[in-house]
Design a protein around this nucleic acid. Structure first.
Lengths: 192, 192, 192, 192
DNA sequence: AATGAATGAGTTTTCATTCAT
DNA sequence: GATGAATGAAAACTCATTCAT
């Protein structure tokens, strides 16, 4: 698969944006900084992304896509519903999710979603997908309405554990993941 | 209790900052905007807070203090350990916590903590206090090491539920709070 | 009459804009150039005029106001209708109207009116006023409908003579002014 | 008559420039916009016109040539001097002269002539030609010095009537044209 | 002949911050 | 205490132009 120059540049710029975000710990990076990192002129970044928003959103989409692929990969290898849920957990708490750039991007993204419609939309898509993965698996274990409820709470627990790890700048410990699983067990046990 | 002009001005500016943050949905507000809302000159805001950082941090401290008081109030009325834990939950999920300004401030604050040491410090203080409240109560129910573990996970769950509510711009539903309580019950039941 | 600092600065900036326009022969001047000429920072120009458009329009309004005053002055000294018409002519062809800056501003303004609504509005106001002055005077000499028609044509002739002078960068010669008066005489003679 | 690719491209680009000028109502159009309209790359416009100035001036020359041809056509059909003068009037006030692009181009061209020598030169050529057409015809009706004077004034009147129509974005009304003719009649009658 | 890729040199605009009064 | 005046520094964005292919 031959990738054209344009595609290569776009990727290079997104990578540079991520590295810059990582270094500064915030989305408050300038186009000039990013472009310099990518070894191109700022004007080129405008040429390819239309503006700063374009580049930032492309970067977020890249992160989201990466996350989706990790999870999708895990799902493909999963046989049982329980394994599928575990795949989501492993995706959410994998070390990639705790790289400084990823953490900064996620946290700023949460904030950005308050004032930027495209950011909010992207975030909703991510939430819907996460939820849908969980609901699918849970439906094979419990009745549909229960599956919805549990998926929501499980998702919240996952987000909370991620948030704390992110704020500490550390990968979340096994114990925290176990706690999420324990909660899941409790919910499933109710049905037994 | 007589409040001097200085104190009144400070409060007015913090209130204006909060209203401005609420309107814009972000901490990206200018000193000029805040000062205008407060009906004073921007220079005065500098006089009282030293700079933008000073005002923003004062605003955050104000939010944190408010939260602390709500919880402290609840704790004072609580007799049993379980009631004390419930007081923390009620404080965390009270409607005040979901005002637009509060949500914007919290979310941006998470992001800010990645690059601003004072913001990170403030956030750590908040987490430590929340945790300490929970640990205290839990210690009367389970052995100390267990209390620590449960407090951590309970805190994460609370944060997750709050985060989701915040992103949706809605107060979290009863059901979500119940889920947190269920998780607590599970943990306590283990010991039984 | 004490003029505040603000008003002084505004006038200084408008003057600087005019001088800059004069030097460059076009409205394509930068805020930085204008500000430097006025001996202040570009930021101050923004502070006082909100933006480049604001300054440019203020400059145009200034020119228009100046023109209006010259004409109004002439009208005040005029007794007969014919003298009033002459006052308009003298105002239109006075040497101030042929300063390089004024000429550049007028010509660019004509062009600007094609794409800028505020510029178009300003120009319409000017035309309406000029016309109204002429119509008023003419009504005392000929029936109303005729006054309207003659005013329109007289205005066009004036504009054409001005345009040619402007393009040549020279005050229009006496002869050209006489031609306009001759046309007026012709129209008035019809009625005799 | 076979037109080479080069000539075709040039015409296409000039046409695109005109359409773009028409849409934006100003000569402030970018090479990229023009090229995209013409369906070619911006680089090609440079290939053919050397630069933006080249393209803009070619566009103006095109407009001037078109005008000249319309007038020349009218002159060819004219027998009497008076008919020749009428041909100039018809050419100046024909509907083509009031297309948005033409109007924008003319008005901006007036402004441009203040700061661009080639634009000024082009404009002088146009004026000289217009004048020469009029003088030629008038010489057969009045003595030479008179012909010069009348031609100048007639030209100014024409320009003024055109300017007003242009600014209003409307073809000039019959009545305005009659006014110009009336003025001519007056001048010719003096001699009678 | 034709173009995609790339950029240097601006230009507008914003804002935290300072300071004399 | 309080403010109006003023600015330096930076950031986003634009565009004519060049050049290798």
């Amino acid at each position: 698969m031959v990738t054209g120059t344009a595609e290569m540049r776009r990727k290079a710029l997104i990578g540079a944006a991520l590295r810059e975000i990582s270094d500064r710990g915030s989305l408050d990076v300038t186009m000039a900084q990013i472009a310099e990192r990518a070894g191109v002129s700022a004007a080129l970044a405008y040429h390819y992304f239309g503006g700063k928003d374009g580049l930032i959103h492309a970067t977020m989409r890249h992160l989201l896509a990466e996350f989706r692929e990790v999870v999708a990969d895990g799902l493909r290898r999963s046989g049982t519903p329980r394994q599928r849920i575990d795949a989501v957990l492993r995706g959410s708490f994998g070390p990639e999710q705790f790289h400084r750039a990823t953490v900064s991007a996620w946290l700023t993204f949460y904030a950005l979603a308050q004032s930027s419609a495209p950011a909010a939309r992207l975030l909703r898509v991510y939430h819907r997908r996460l939820r849908s993965n969980l609901v699918h698996a849970l439906r094979q274990l419990v009745p549909a309405p229960e599956a919805e409820r549990i998926a929501e709470n499980l998702g919240a627990f996952i987000d909370g554990v991620y948030l704390r790890g992110a704020l500490r700048g550390q990968v979340v410990p096994r114990a925290a993941i176990s706690a999420v699983e324990d909660y899941l067990d409790l919910e499933l046990a109710r049905r037994a």
